[in-house]
Amino acid sequence: MSFAERLRKGDEAAYLVTLISALTIVLITVLLAQHLWSNSVLARQKFGFHFLTSSTWDPLSGNFGALPFVYGTLLTSFISLLIAVPVGIGAAIFLSELAPRGISNALTFLVELLAAVPSVIFGLIGIFVLVPMLNVVIPPIAAHLSFLPIFGGSFFGVSYLTAGLVLSIMIVPFIVSISREVLMAVPTAQREAMMALGATKWDVTWRSVVPYARRGIIGSIFLALARALGETMAVTMVIGNVPEIHASLLSPGYTIAAVIANEFAEASEDLYLHALIEMALVLFVVTMIVNASARLLMLTAGIREIRE
């Protein structure tokens, strides 16, 4: 057997092994969807599409609707991105481009440590540290802004805003850590070419390095968003767990993942259990739609850039 032939054989083995790995992921996703679909049959038959538009959640009378939970999930994730994206990208740029190497490494270590903290710890910090702080800080601010619907109503400490804040703390490490890696992977030639044109350090960073790493940074935001949509424990501890829809960010609400975690263990009726599993199905679909539309947004943005 010649060397080239063995190499070819090795290639094939590698191809097969990696193919199987890739298929495993597809298989898990398909099985998950199939399982959720077949185990929610009672709820799907009884409520149909009404499940998505109804705001009632009454386990005793067997009436279930997903709307307040979908709303809460999307709203809290949106708030968390609004805070975490600028902070995360800013921190990543500082760590990769501006900070001295020693400080950058030390801070990155801390950021990655933050990513490893269990979510229940964030929930406890949320309820015992953040909530009392917000109880002092928010009411005076809200009093001045109460003409805006998003700051109306009374504030109890637990709210969409509190959940969004806790989530943002939880997802910042993902954005920082991955964005820093991709920024550092930008070829030195990119920077040198820009500098040769007489650009300042910031010009180089903002106009050459960040656009080059754009794809990776957006990828990090997707990952963060997925984490925010599915986060359970930390959210349920600070959102107030009320299945209602409010325009005000200061009102208590509920999320899909939170209601599943809260009620699954005690659900003894079949319909109730199926309704909760249908909630998981809804979360699955919501996550896919959000991810797909984010990707679409990126794609159209990319096309526009090429046309320019």
């Binding site: 009632t56 009454d58 637990v158 501890m237 107030g240 009320v242 299945p243 208590p252």
Partner: peptide, 14 residues
């Protein structure tokens, strides 16, 4: 009566 009910008022703690 139930272990999870539809509450007329209030907020839920975990």
């Amino acid at each position: 009566v139930g272990s999870a009910i539809s509450w007329p008022v209030g907020i839920g703690g975990k």
